[in-house]
C-alpha cells in the first residue's frame, strides 16, 4: 500500500502547463528527494498536491493513504494528513503563533472527532516543539512569522509539522537561506518525526540537506515530469555534474541560482 500515489499528473497555472504527466509512488516510512532545475515544477508539485488556488489539475490522481486529494479543499487535505512546509512562509501580524498553531491542531482534531486541547496541554506541547527547533519560547507569542528571519521562518514551519504530526510532509526548499546550524536544526526536526508510518518529500536544490536527511530515493524533475530516479548517490552526481547531462541542455542554460 502506498502512502502517496501520484499518477499521470498534469497541472497548469494561468494556462501554462507546469506538470506534464508526473508519476510518484511513496511507501510509508520513505523519504523521497526531488531535485531539478529551476522552473522544473518542484514547488508547483507541492502547491498542486496541497490544493493552492490557481493551480489547475488537468489530468491525473493523487491518493494519500487511500484518500483522493485532488477533489478536496486545502484544509481537507491537511486534515487527511498532508503537510506542506512553505518555501516562503506567510507573515500574519496580529495573530500569535500560539493561537495560529492551536487553531490548526484543534481544527484537525475536530475533523477526527477529537476534542480541542486545553490551553494548558497545548502550551506544554508547543513549548516542547519550540525548543526542539531551537526557537526561544517568545516566538510562541509573536505574530505568525512576523519579523522572523528566513531561518526562523523555516524552523517555525518545522515546529508546526511537529505539532500536527502529518502522514506525509512536503518540505519545499526548507534548506534555502539556512546556515549550517539552522540546517542541522531543520534536519533534526524532520528526522525526529521519521517513522514507519510517515513519509516525506524533500524538495531541494542542494545535495547538502540530503547529507542530514538521508533520502531513500532521489528523483530528478524536469519539464514537469520525473526523468530520472536513483538512490542517495544520485544527489551527489547531480551536485558534481548539474542537470545538463540529463536534460540534454547545455550547462549554461541550466545554471542554478539559489532560491
Amino acid at each position: 500500500m502506498s502512502m502517496l500515489s501520484i499518477k499521470n499528473l498534469h497541472a497548469s497555472v494561468e494556462d501554462k502547463t507546469i506538470l506534464n504527466g508526473l508519476d510518484l509512488d511513496i511507501k510509508p516510512g520513505e523519504v523521497h528527494a526531488i531535485m531539478g532545475p529551476n522552473g522544473a515544477g518542484k514547488s508547483t508539485l507541492g502547491y498542486v498536491v496541497s490544493g493552492r488556488e490557481g493551480y489547475n489539475v488537468e489530468q491525473g490522481t493523487a491518493v494519500l493513504d487511500g484518500v483522493e486529494l485532488l477533489e478536496l479543499d486545502a484544509e481537507e487535505r491537511a486534515r487527511a494528513g498532508l503537510f506542506l512546509a512553505f518555501q516562503y512562509p506567510v507573515e500574519i501580524p496580529g495573530v500569535s503563533n500560539m493561537e495560529f498553531m492551536k487553531a490548526s491542531v484543534d481544527a484537525q482534531r475536530e475533523a477526527r472527532g477529537e476534542a480541542a486541547l486545553s490551553s494548558r496541554d497545548f502550551l506544554t506541547m508547543a513549548k516542547e516543539a519550540c525548543s526542539k527547533v531551537q526557537l526561544p519560547l517568545a516566538f510562541l507569542k509573536r505574530g505568525v512569522n512576523e519579523g522572523f528571519s528566513g531561518g526562523e521562518k523555516k524552523r517555525n514551519e518545522i515546529m508546526q509539522m511537529l505539532l500536527l504530526e502529518p502522514k506525509l510532509c512536503i518540505l519545499d526548499e526548507s534548506d534555502s537561506g539556512l546556515d549550517i546550524d539552522a540546517l542541522q536544526v531543520v534536519a533534526d526536526g524532520v528526522n525526529s518525526l521519521r517513522s514507519d508510518d510517515r513519509s516525506f518529500i524533500v524538495i531541494t536544490h542542494y545535495q547538502r540537506l540530503l547529507d542530514y536527511i538521508k533520502p531513500d530515493f532521489v528523483h530528478v524533475l524536469s519539464e514537469g515530469k520525473i526523468i530520472k530516479t536513483g538512490g542517495a548517490e544520485l544527489a551527489h552526481e547531480l551536485e558534481a555534474q548539474g542537470y545538463a547531462w540529463l536534460t540534454g541542455d547545455s550547462a549554461e542554460n541550466t545554471a542554478e541560482t539559489s532560491a
Partner: peptide, 12 residues
C-alpha cells in the same frame, strides 16, 4: 495567507 491557514487544517 488564507491558503497558508487552510493548509494547516483551518476551514476557509
Amino acid at each position: 495567507a488564507l491558503y497558508y491557514l487552510q493548509s494547516r487544517g483551518m476551514s476557509k
